[in-house]
Amino acid sequence: MIARKTFREVWLMTLVYALMMVILQVPVILMWPELYDDLKKSALLRNAGFDFLQRIGAGVTDHQETIAYRNWIAVMLFLRSVNLLGIAASVLLGTALFARERETQTLEFLLTRPVSRGAVLWQKSWPVILCVVCPIFVVNTSAILWSWQIEMDLPLAPLTLANLHGSLFVLAILAMTTFVSVKCRVQAHVAFWVGGIVVLQLGLYLIPRVRRFSLFRLSDFDWYGPILAGNIGLPEMFVPGIGPAHSLWLLLATLVFYGLAWRALRNLEL
């Protein structure tokens, strides 16, 4: 019943989030042929002030159009849609999970029912996890169909791996938001803390000397590009030593934050 209630609360936001992903995705795919010509002529990205923008510029203007197109997908579907819309959805949906219940004084009702706090956390979390992750897989995978419209090929396997990684990235943010939502009494405070952390991480990413401390280092063009090019597979994503294992760290971060959220909820005294 708690899961069903949670679904009822978030389905509309999920629909809007998925629609926004579609709206952002379709034009940049269908306009690719003209964009590719324009990008090749433009020196804007290649001369940009940030090193990562220069690499993106080089990537999306590669002389092999297939490679350039996959880099374009990495930028548009993952660097933009997943990193921006996915984070926004995670923060918006995660913020409400517990802090709103505290604001509306319904958390006491929920926590005094004959159901464990672990079950409350689980039944509130898994619908939101599905709502955040499913649009990433569904909308991004539909890019294969749109690519056929412009006679470009987008292979399913690398795209699925990129979706998996993108999902783990937003799940880590969702888990962190859930933890903060348990700790804070007011939704605005959750948004302040999580928003502050995300902005700080983004700021760190823009400074090359401290970029390695940024969470966005795990989810940038330098990571999605090679995945979509087929140069990074599951072993490199999850096994330290074989590859950077960025996906493993995100998975572990997600589990740690859910563990912290569970502990905070278990010890919560309203």
């Binding site: 019943m1 004084q105 319904t106 006491e108 009702f109 005094t112 029912r113 004959p114 159901v115």
Partner: peptide, 29 residues
Amino acid sequence: RSRTSYLPGETSVYQQMTGASFLQFAQSF
């Protein structure tokens, strides 16, 4: 809690639900 019904001191009902769905939700536990 499975043998107890507790009515909190602060009114604790879900605003977005209908009265019937809240009642069903509360009884489902």
